[in-house]
């Protein structure tokens, strides 16, 4: 093999790398700079030093609320893992029509959070289906204002995320289940395992790669949630900011209030949290493979 410099690989790479450099790498650098400026996108940014961060951490209770809400939002990850493994076990059997069920569960995943969110909003309206259903079966006397009650806002938004993710993560776990050799279950049955023990000792360890994958993907998505909050709160973030998450707050500061510099500081906090989270996840993943 002759080792000589060739331009060919770089030619193949150029178009894609150019796009990624302009729309991913440059923005990261620019956002660091903007976070030290006062900037409204229309007039040029002016340097203000650390004052955005100072305000963020010491004088902005809504930011802390957003931070708290985003961390609460991470609860969707364990909920999704448990529900989707159960669902995958349920659909992992040879029954006539099983594919139709799997497909049906997948439909919320592909329908898009905006359309689905609007449907939910209509059902949860004070004059909506949920209230009329609950009243007619006698659970409620008076309609509840589901979407204007601060205590309900975040749980309802999280419920939408869970509902939309069920089919997606179910499919991932299903693929994992189908990779677990049947002989392991036969051996377990010989050893006298009951159904619960069978899943505890074989299914869960067998699904480890999928569990890690889903944990990473769904927790990153949870930290970055926007559409569900936007659509269910009508773009307002809920009464008393009860549904405001980090990305929603970033959006409001940058694109509603025109505080792009301040929003960039929020973006930096988001980046640091996401990075920490990813590193933690990778550590966990490495520990998982070492154990094998």
């Amino acid at each position: 093999m002759t080792k000589k410099f060739s331009l060919t690989p770089y030619l193949f790479l150029t178009p894609a790398l150019l796009v990624i450099a302009v729309f991913v790498l440059y923005p990261v650098i620019a956002v660091v700079y903007y976070s030290f400026t006062s900037y409204d996108i229309v007039t040029p940014p002016s340097w203000v030093g650390l004052s955005n961060y100072q305000r963020l951490f010491t004088a902005d209770p809504i930011f802390w609320q957003a931070l708290k809400n985003s961390f609460i939002y991470l609860l969707v990850t364990p909920i999704l893992i448990v529900l989707c493994i159960m669902l995958a076990i349920a659909v992992n059997r040879k029954l006539p029509g099983i594919n139709a069920f799997r497909a049906l569960y997948y439909i919320p995943v592909i329908s898009g959070s905006i359309a689905v969110g609007i449907a939910w909003r209509m059902m949860l309206d004070t004059n909506g289906l949920l209230n009329s259903l609950l009243i007619s079966i006698g659970i409620l006397q008076e309609p509840i204002q589901w979407l204007s009650e601060p205590a309900y806002t975040l749980p309802i938004v999280m419920l939408l995320t869970v509902w939309m993710g069920l089919g997606h993560y179910m499919m991932i776990f299903l693929a994992g289940l189908q990779n677990i050799p049947e002989e392991l279950y036969d051996a377990a049955r010989m050893d006298g395992c009951n159904d619960f023990q069978k899943h505890w000792y074989i299914t869960f360890p067998g699904l480890r790669p999928q569990i890690t994958f889903v944990a990473v993907i769904s927790s990153l998505a949870a930290l970055q949630v926007f559409n569900e909050v936007f659509i269910l709160t009508g773009g307002l973030g809920g009464v008393l900011n009860s549904g405001v998450t980090m990305v929603f707050y970033l959006w409001r500061q940058a694109f509603r209030l025109g505080h792009a510099g301040y929003a960039s500081a929020v973006a930096m906090v988001l980046l640091v949290i996401t990075l920490t989270f990813s590193i933690m996840n990778i550590r966990l993943l490495e520990r998982g493979t070492e154990a094998d």
């Binding site: 729309f23 991913v24 790498l25 990261v28 903007y34 926007f226 940058a254 973006a267 980046l271 996401t274």
Partner: peptide, 23 residues
Amino acid sequence: IFYLLLATFVVPPQLSFIPSFVL
């Protein structure tokens, strides 16, 4: 280059929207 690309996985897409808007 490849690992640099992989690292961008963890960059929240919304973070880039402010500079992208300016662009």
